[in-house]
């Protein structure tokens, strides 16, 4: 699963733009990944400019 590191996200939306199943919900200062929809493809991990997201097997 993809883990969001606490207090790291800047809410820029780059991850949302590349997410194939649209599993990321992003508000002004809130980010959530829907585990049921997420396919663990890790594109969000790679595109994040400040390594907020992390894959944990």
């Amino acid at each position: 699963m993809i883990i969001i590191k606490e207090n790291m996200c800047d809410f820029c939306g780059a991850c949302v733009a590349v997410c194939p199943p649209d599993a990321i919900e992003l508000r002004e200062a809130e980010i959530r990944i829907d585990e049921d929809t997420c396919t663990d493809c890790k594109l969000c991990v790679y595109v994040c400019p400040i390594d907020t997201l992390e894959y944990a097997a």
Partner: peptide
């Protein structure tokens, strides 16, 4: 279909 391909997005800081 709006999903960006990885080669078509710049990750910027």
């Amino acid at each position: 279909r709006t999903q960006l391909k990885m080669k078509d997005v710049e990750s910027c800081i």
